[in-house]
Amino acid sequence: MKRRIRILIAKPGLDGHDRGAKFVARSLRDAGAEIIYTGIRQTPEAIAAAAVQEDVDFLGLSCLSGAHNRLFPEVVKLVRELGGQDIVVFGGGVIPKRDWPGLNEAGIRFIFGPGTPMSDVIAVIRENAPADAELAP
């Protein structure tokens, strides 16, 4: 039997809009993942430490305040420094398309804009999960 996929859903910065992050967390729980949820107002340092200590497979970052270009790459950098080499990072929130290439380059592999169906998010997670991990069968 495969183990369950572990995902950290985190909100870096000062933005308090957590409706999307919570919706994603709950939907992924219902899809069978183990979700670590840390709430709003997280520093990049705290998020990186949580991702590594929790040994997650995925790290989802949500930001609606426009601070993503500064905060997302910072989180990725710190995660890698702490040894979280294989953690797949994805992002969501109000992120203009023109920012996507830069974020992709900084290691945010996938970006989900407003209105993305959950089935798309789940598909990406299934496709990129480690071989020994799965969502609900």
Partner: peptide, 21 residues
Amino acid sequence: SSPFSGGAILGDRLRMQDHAG
């Protein structure tokens, strides 16, 4: 863990923010 999906939301960390990082 959810008895339905086997998934879980692990939220205790949220209340331990004084030591995050």
